[in-house]
Lab assay of single mutants.
Amino acid sequence: KNAAQIVDEALNQGITLFVADNRLQYETSRDNIPEELLNEWKYYRQDLIDFLQQLD
């Protein structure tokens, strides 16, 4: 998997990933985040941060 796929997957589930103060953050109206997504975000944290910062 790559960062773009993970960001896309999150968006499809109503979750927006973004970077604030060099930390990976998310916004969602969901009550909870599936644990497998959280684990994936932790595992790919630096890739996601790098990818999202390139988009800014």
Rank of each mutant, 00 (worst) to 15 (best):
47 D>C: 07
14 G>T: 02
30 R>N: 10
11 L>T: 08
41 W>S: 00
7 V>Q: 03
12 N>G: 11
20 A>R: 15
33 I>W: 03
9 E>Q: 06
2 N>A: 10
15 I>F: 09
45 R>Y: 15
12 N>D: 10
31 D>N: 11
19 V>M: 06
32 N>A: 11
33 I>E: 01
22 N>E: 08
39 N>S: 11
42 K>E: 14
7 V>W: 07
15 I>G: 00
39 N>W: 12
38 L>K: 07
35 E>K: 09
54 Q>C: 10
9 E>T: 05
48 L>I: 13
56 D>Y: 08
46 Q>A: 11
53 Q>H: 09
19 V>H: 04
28 T>A: 07
41 W>C: 02
36 E>M: 08
16 T>F: 15
46 Q>T: 08
17 L>F: 05
39 N>D: 11
9 E>V: 04
1 K>C: 04
9 E>C: 05
52 L>I: 06
38 L>R: 06
6 I>P: 00
27 E>R: 15
28 T>Q: 03
54 Q>V: 09
46 Q>G: 06
42 K>A: 15
9 E>I: 04
41 W>V: 04
8 D>Y: 15
22 N>S: 09
9 E>W: 07
14 G>E: 04
35 E>S: 10
16 T>W: 13
26 Y>I: 06
22 N>K: 07
42 K>F: 14
12 N>K: 15
28 T>V: 04
31 D>E: 12
40 E>F: 06
5 Q>R: 11
12 N>Y: 10
6 I>Y: 02
17 L>P: 00
34 P>L: 04
30 R>T: 07
25 Q>P: 01
20 A>I: 14
48 L>A: 01
7 V>I: 12
33 I>G: 01
5 Q>G: 05
38 L>C: 09
34 P>C: 04
8 D>P: 01
17 L>H: 02
9 E>P: 00
23 R>V: 14
44 Y>P: 01
14 G>S: 04
8 D>S: 14
6 I>H: 01
55 L>D: 09
27 E>G: 07
43 Y>H: 10
34 P>N: 06
8 D>L: 15
25 Q>C: 15
30 R>D: 06
7 V>C: 05
5 Q>V: 07
33 I>R: 00
38 L>N: 03
11 L>I: 09
34 P>H: 04
18 F>E: 03
52 L>C: 01
48 L>H: 00
10 A>T: 03
1 K>A: 04
19 V>A: 06
10 A>H: 02
24 L>P: 01
40 E>S: 06
28 T>R: 03
34 P>I: 03
4 A>F: 07
41 W>D: 00
45 R>V: 10
32 N>P: 13
12 N>V: 13
24 L>A: 00
42 K>W: 14
20 A>S: 12
38 L>M: 10
41 W>L: 07
19 V>D: 01
34 P>A: 06
25 Q>H: 13
30 R>K: 09
47 D>E: 15
50 D>Y: 11
45 R>I: 10
2 N>I: 09
2 N>M: 11
20 A>V: 15
42 K>T: 14
16 T>R: 15
6 I>E: 00
39 N>H: 09
22 N>R: 06
29 S>M: 12
4 A>D: 06
25 Q>S: 09
41 W>Q: 00
53 Q>L: 15
36 E>K: 08
56 D>C: 11
22 N>L: 07
39 N>M: 13
19 V>I: 09
21 D>Y: 07
3 A>Y: 03
56 D>L: 12
44 Y>R: 07
